[in-house]
Amino acid sequence: MADLNNRKIRAYGLAVGKLPTGSKNDITDVAGVRVGHVTIDRPLDSGQGEYACTGVTAILPHGGSLFREKVTAASYVLNGFGKTTGLVQVNELGVLESPIMLTNTFSVPAVTQGTLQYMLAGHEEIGDTTGTINIVVGECNDSHLNSIRQCVVTPEDAIEAIRKASDEQVEEGAVGAGKGMVAFGYKGGIGSSSRVVQVEEDKSYTVGVIVLSNFGRKEDLRIDYLKSGAQALQEPADGSIIIVLATDAPVSDRQLLRLAKRTGIGLGRTGSHFGHGSGDIVIAFSTAHKISHQSTGLTETRTQLREDHPVMNELFAACAEATEEAIYNSLSQAVTTTGRKGNTIHALEFPAQS
């Protein structure tokens, strides 16, 4: 696989924070995590300049059965102008039992249906000899570049994104669910980053973040010298972002909630103020424990970090740093894109490395 680091912000001599990154500097540095994309980029036969500029992204916490081996999870809403599925049950039970799916606003039903079909096909017990399943889908509005009313995403696209998921380096920018997204008036989309927290000489924990960036105006961007680059969209928009946080640290769902809140610090550092019409939503999970769906035991025993250990502060910092850098990577990895009615969003011009 080609090296996808050539347009990450670190290729331009820019770095965020003090903690080291993982080897790929993305969410798949958390062992077992997989990411897959389906990108849709084609004109529609309407004669009205309609264009499909959208897609689906799948994030899988591990490569086994997520229903039979759930992971600890939590979600946090920074601002709730969003149309997600599944977060009520995630927060109630503290577990995730499906892939996390990302797409555009009007495609949440189709992606939910496709993900459900995929999970039912591999689990004959769901809805028969055991309970139902909780599908998690997040979205952002890509209607500037995508003819969103045409609802071109199908359940089969969701299934394909899941099947394509791998633990290789994550493709970023104008791909998958990020194909039609805009951030700070420039081309946004998928971005990812990771941090490694060293605990002892032979023990470390990894935090990985993947974002779907679709928020902010040019004047909000806090890296001032970048604003003199390519032409930016000037239309005011609150926009949205979905942040998916993964870690292998042994934390409870309550501790995951605390970690999820710290991603908002990284988001704010880029220039976001969580606007009125912005859907800023965090979905977090830990791969440290696999929770069996079937168990006859009355109790279960888990290991989790002490709340007052200094490692918690390091994990908080890792969440903020990885989120900020993931957002910048979504900008630096994107390419100028033309979509519906000839609308064009330019890629942000990063400075050449000196």
Rank of each mutant, 00 (worst) to 15 (best):
Q117N: 15
G178F: 03
D157M: 05
E50W: 07
H273D: 12
R68A: 13
K179N: 01
R10Q: 06
R68T: 04
R262Y: 14
A249Y: 06
T296I: 09
M1Y: 07
G17F: 00
T344I: 06
V251M: 09
I27M: 01
I148M: 08
Q294L: 14
T301V: 11
H293T: 13
I40S: 02
G122F: 06
I27R: 01
L348H: 03
V209F: 14
H123V: 09
V153K: 00
S292T: 12
Q353M: 13
V33N: 00
F274I: 09
D45A: 14
I162G: 05
G82D: 14
N141M: 07
V197R: 00
T344P: 07
T336Y: 04
E156A: 13
G178H: 01
E69P: 03
K70L: 05
R195E: 01
I100D: 04
F106E: 01
Q198P: 06
C140K: 03
Q117D: 15
R254K: 15
L60D: 00
A352L: 11
V207C: 11
R68S: 10
G188T: 04
Q113H: 14
Y186C: 08
K261V: 15
G266S: 10
A15M: 05
Q117F: 14
P109H: 08
G239Q: 00
E69G: 12
L259N: 06
G49Y: 02
A249H: 04
L257T: 15
L212Q: 14
S240H: 05
E307F: 15
T129L: 12
G271D: 08
T337P: 01
S166D: 10
K203H: 14
G47M: 07
V108E: 07
F350Y: 02
L145A: 04
L78A: 14
V56A: 01
T84C: 15
G49S: 03
G339N: 02
A15G: 11
V77K: 10
V211M: 09
A284I: 08
N141T: 04
K179F: 07
T338A: 10
R163G: 15
I126M: 04
L331D: 01
I291H: 02
Q304W: 13
K290N: 10
D224S: 14
P155K: 03
Q169Y: 05
K24R: 12
A322W: 02
Y118L: 08
E172T: 02
T299L: 09
K18N: 08
L19W: 00
K179G: 05
L245Y: 02
A246Q: 06
I133Q: 04
G63T: 04
P310S: 12
G275C: 13
I210P: 07
A2E: 04
Q169R: 11
L66W: 00
E125W: 08
L87S: 13
D308Q: 13
T39H: 02
G63H: 05
Q169E: 03
N214T: 11
E324M: 13
S332L: 07
Q333L: 10
